[in-house]
Design a binder for these strands. Sequence first.
DNA 1: TACAATTATAGGGCTTGACGCATATTTTCT
DNA 2: AGAAAATATGCGTCAAGCCCTATAATTGTA
Lengths: 83, 83
Amino acid sequence: MAELARTPRQIGSLVRRARKRRGWSQTQLGEKAGLRQETISLIETGNPATRLETILAVLAALDLEFRLAARSKGQPADIEALF
Amino acid sequence: MAELARTPRQIGSLVRRARKRRGWSQTQLGEKAGLRQETISLIETGNPATRLETILAVLAALDLEFRLAARSKGQPADIEALF
DNA sequence: TACAATTATAGGGCTTGACGCATATTTTCT
DNA sequence: AGAAAATATGCGTCAAGCCCTATAATTGTA
């Protein structure tokens, strides 16, 4: 129900999966998040220097959110449900 | 067990709580994360333009991690355990 | 209250994000 | 294959991060 997001690349690929699952193009997601298609592209490819506010805007547009938790060695949580 | 982190300010205050719970100064956290004390200060006060890689480094130093999940209207999860 | 530690600010410097605009490349579909 | 859509790149511009060095302001404590 929650997916591990430790690196920019992990976050990027999760964003891409979530976007595709919704059937949106990068341009469409960009419009919803107030960003350009190029910016979405960079995020999805794992740009490590993306601004915090920028990814938060993308997550909001996807109706997703970050949760802060202790690092777990256990199961990475399920993927199916959301992406 | 997981704390909601939707805005830079929420993230900043959670970082601060986690750091203090560990009894570390900003300088100490900075050393562990490979960052300067000033940078930690900015993050904790909610700087929205912090780089993604930077907050991820801070979380790792605190042995925390982000998890990506669907936005929940429900309970914000418990605070006690980690911070 | 005075001292020590911690945290917040400031300026110069290099790097880079995101914008705007254009285009190349890749993928998708008929 | 060919056309259309989607995605990745490139360039100039402005704003800002984080570094480094200092220093002010705040907090905690003897």
